[in-house]
């Protein structure tokens, strides 16, 4: 990654969008707006990956998070729809508990930040043009067992979905 002024500008713009939309996710009162801010947040994170020359990760980010996770949340929202969507993402008064959690999180961040050596972590080796080949090679050699287990799990889930769809039909016929 060559660090030129345009990369820095792009980074700060993306960072502003990510942080802004992340704050808006919890700040807006309508849960549908929260989901759309979530999608905006995910897509701008894909932009950060692009800045780091990780094209494959960026595309996966868009496909899985913006394309699938947001849709799944929308399914959830539509199935349990409230009469008044304007009050669907409610606030509550548990400020003490929230303050405790936030303080603990900040403390953990502080300790970790203190322990980090803050050396330059960027390597001088250029990013391979074909990162997909490297990822694929690693997945099928070093990490082959987790990969195959995940593949099996997904196939089982897929066949399970087909079986569920079939069963409804059998009931309908009776």
């Amino acid at each position: 990654m060559e660090t030129c002024i345009y990369n820095v500008i792009a980074f700060y713009m993306l960072a502003a969008v990510i942080l802004g939309s992340a704050v808006m996710i919890v700040a807006v009162r309508n849960i549908v707006h929260s989901v759309l801010f979530l999608a905006a947040c995910f897509i701008s994170m894909a932009g950060i990956y692009l800045l780091l020359d990780a094209v494959y990760l960026a595309i996966i980010q868009v496909l899985i998070y913006a394309g699938a996770v947001c849709i799944m949340i929308i399914f959830g929202i539509m199935l349990i729809r409230r009469a008044d969507m304007k009050e669907s993402n409610l606030f509550n008064k548990q400020t003490k508990l929230a303050a405790g959690v936030v303080a603990m999180t900040l403390a953990v961040y502080g300790i970790l930040a203190g322990k980090t050596a803050w050396t330059d972590v960027t390597s001088n080796v250029p990013v391979p043009a074909d990162s997909l080949d490297k990822i694929g090679g690693l997945l099928l050699s070093q990490y082959v067992i987790p990969f195959e287990v995940a593949a099996l799990l997904l196939t089982v889930a897929l066949i399970g979905a087909i079986m569920l769809a079939r069963e409804v039909k059998a009931d309908g016929d009776n």
Binding site: V55, I59, I60, V62, L63, G67, C70, I71, A129, D130
Partner: peptide, 25 residues
């Protein structure tokens, strides 16, 4: 010329679902 062009096409195409839904909702 994207090395993973096919993947890119489907990732972006999946976003249009969300936009149709925004319009309807």
């Amino acid at each position: 010329d994207l090395n993973i062009g096919l993947f890119f096409v489907f990732a972006i195409a999946s976003l249009s679902t969300l936009i149709f839904w925004i319009g309807g909702w």
